[in-house]
Write a protein that binds this DNA or RNA. Structure first.
Length: 539
RNA sequence: GGGGCGGUAGCUCAGCCGGUUAGAGCAAGGGACUCAUAAUCCCUGGGUCGCGGGUUCAAGUCCCGCCCGCCCUACCA
């Protein structure tokens, strides 16, 4: 994309009643890396995340805990959700809560407009209702019995009691009318829903036929009121999806310019909720005459032991369990590098530990250590000037330039794993380059051989400049370690802040000034001595 | 039932519109080197590409059938 364009990226707003696990953190990290990449590229970047706080479940748990739903949500936001962002180092520009006044106003304006324009009508919702659960059930949640007192009737799986057929007055959104427009959208913009597998699912789903969507509830009151009928609150999904526009000013005349500047967004979501984002949401926007999202990307799930991670199966893992041992940078790197973004990925402590050791500690971290140590030892900490470049140096320069172009192209396609892999070619090439050039051998002869001395300078400048490029390129992925490296390289003095380095220009050779003062570097990624089994017990 | 995705070296995975002896990383074995976080670099081993048919000069890569796994099939976020 052209530098300076708007890049508005969102995570889902997470249901505040959930307990944050690495799946939530994975989504956050992916969106954050994309945001940091674009921000550093000079694009007009905005990262939004937040929490979804309405609905019957939250009302119930709040009541059960003797507090109001708002108090309940407040407490969870502060104790669980905002801390999650700290844990994995998210640099979000905004945090929206569906209980924010700006959101409620925007939602109210939106639904009123749809109502005024005839997209909403009053209808009757008919469903199976379990008195024990106090909620409507889908057929999947019911079981039919052959024998016994309830033979032939549908029973609630939880209570094993017959469900009733209840009818309720509801307001409906005429979603069925948008079926063809949606199909046209998927057809004309093949990258609207990604990846391909999710797109196929969505298209198939829509082709089966869309029904109108019930968008109000009257059996409880924790939600945003339907403006023309206060006895109803707006269905949570309809409410929640609108966060993406209300956060950037939809519905507030004073924020009109801001809205036009940001929208439309790139939505990063788990594939399980891709349908809400790729079907219901664009239909809502079409009805309101607003542009549909730029993209909806449904990423895969994290599998633990081959199964979807779940709390009930005790495979749920809290992000802190990982960051406490390996740090937030390693968390970010691992999940985005080891898993093809868009596919399901297997998580294991063994794999995490192995990659940390091989790629971060021995690969990148050790490369930084050896270069800094040699500049310190052979040039008393002052980055030497390069002499004449040979083919070996030119090859490194090409590697860096190619890596930048490839990584940027990959990030643009949301292929984050490929982007990181492209950057990593620099780590691998530099380690090989050093082994081949043997600067430690050149150093022995440098005292009485000016050619060797110049050559040593060229080699170490090349390595240092390569590290400079790595710091810039990896800053979105590993903000902390790269900041440490930036300091160690003494790059700040000549180049300014790391996050101010234009990322698409990171491949231009020769940016690190000779004479920059290198300072000793403690290991970027210290070896983890703790045996893997000790931490795996926590899973 | 209908539909989607996947089943490739011990492990995790690449293999785009079919085309030379099927690749990478890790793990394993051997060697080199010592600046570095006992690290780095080089070499090697190892695969009936789920199974069975078919199309083709040529199939992991297209078609059909089958087996296995995960998922979707709307109002739980």
């Amino acid at each position: 994309m052209a530098s300076g364009d708007s890049f508005y990226v969102t995570t889902p707003i997470f249901y505040v009643n959930d307990v944050p696990h690495i799946g939530h953190a994975y989504t956050e990290v992916a969106a954050d890396v994309l945001a940091r990449w674009h921000r550093q590229a000079g694009d007009d970047t905005w990262l939004l995340t937040g929490t979804d706080e309405h609905g019957e479940k939250i009302l119930r748990t709040a009541v059960a805990n003797g507090v109001t739903p708002k108090q309940w949500a407040d407490q969870l936001v502060e104790s669980a959700w905002k801390p999650l962002l700290q844990t994995v180092d998210i640099a979000n520009d905004d945090y929206i809560r569906t209980t924010d006044e700006r959101h409620e106003k925007g939602v109210t304006a939106f639904i009123q407009q749809l109502h005024d324009d005839g997209h909403i009508y009053e209808g009757v919702y008919e469903g199976y209702y379990c008195v024990g659960c106090e909620e409507y059930k889908q057929l999947d949640d019911l079981v039919e019995t052959e024998a016994g007192d309830y033979a032939g009737r549908k029973l609630c799986k939880i209570h094993a009691l017959p469900v009733e057929i209840l009818k309720e007055k509801n307001y409906f959104f005429r979603m069925s009318g948008f079926q063809q427009q949606l199909l046209d959208l998927y057809e004309s913009r093949p990258d609207f829903v990604q990846p391909e597998s999710v797109r196929n699912e969505i298209i198939q789903f829509v082709k089966q036929g869309l029904e109108d969507l019930s968008i109000s509830r009257s059996s409880f009151d924790w939600g945003i009121q339907v403006p023309w009928d206060p006895s109803h609150v707006i269905y949570v999904w309809f409410d929640a999806l609108l966060n993406y526009v209300t956060a950037v000013g939809y519905g507030d005349p004073a924020q009109r310019a801001e809205f036009l500047r940001r929208w439309p967004a790139t939505h990063i979501v788990g594939k399980d909720i891709a349908r809400f984002h790729a079907v219901i949401w664009p239909a809502m926007l079409m009805a309101a005459g607003l542009p549909v999202p730029k993209r909806v990307f449904g990423h895969g799930w994290l599998l633990v032991g081959g199964e979807k991670m779940s709390k009930s199966k005790l495979t749920g893992i809290a992000p802190q369990q990982i960051t406490e041992v390996f740090g937030s940078d390693a968390f970010r790197y691992y999940f985005l590098r080891a898993i093809s973004f868009g596919q399901d990925g297997s998580f294991s402590w063994e794999d995490l530990s192995a990659r940390y050791q091989a790629e971060l500690a021995n690969g990148f971290g050790n490369l930084a250590s050896r270069v800094v140590a040699m500049v310190t030892r052979y040039f008393t900490g002052s980055v030497p000037a390069a002499g004449e470049y040979t083919d070996a140096e030119l090859a490194i320069q090409r590697t860096v330039a190619t890596a930048v172009a490839d990584a940027d192209a990959a990030m643009e396609r949301l292929a984050i794993h490929e982007g990181i892999a492209a950057i990593w070619t620099i780590v691998d090439e530099l380690n090989g380059y050093l082994t081949e050039q043997e600067p430690w051998v050149l150093a022995r002869g440098a005292a009485d051989d000016s050619a060797a001395a110049e050559r040593l300078g060229t080699v170490l400048y090349t390595a240092s400049e390569g590290l400079r490029a790595l710091a810039v390129l990896l800053s979105p992925v590993m903000p902390k370690a790269t900041a440490t490296l930036w300091d160690a390289l003494g790059a700040q003095a000549g180049l300014g802040a790391l996050t101010a380095q234009p990322i698409r220009a990171a491949g231009e050779w020769g940016q690190l000034p000779a004479g920059s003062t290198v300072t000793p570097l403690a290991g970027l990624f210290p070896r983890i001595e703790e045996p893997v089994s000790a931490v795996s017990g926590a899973a």
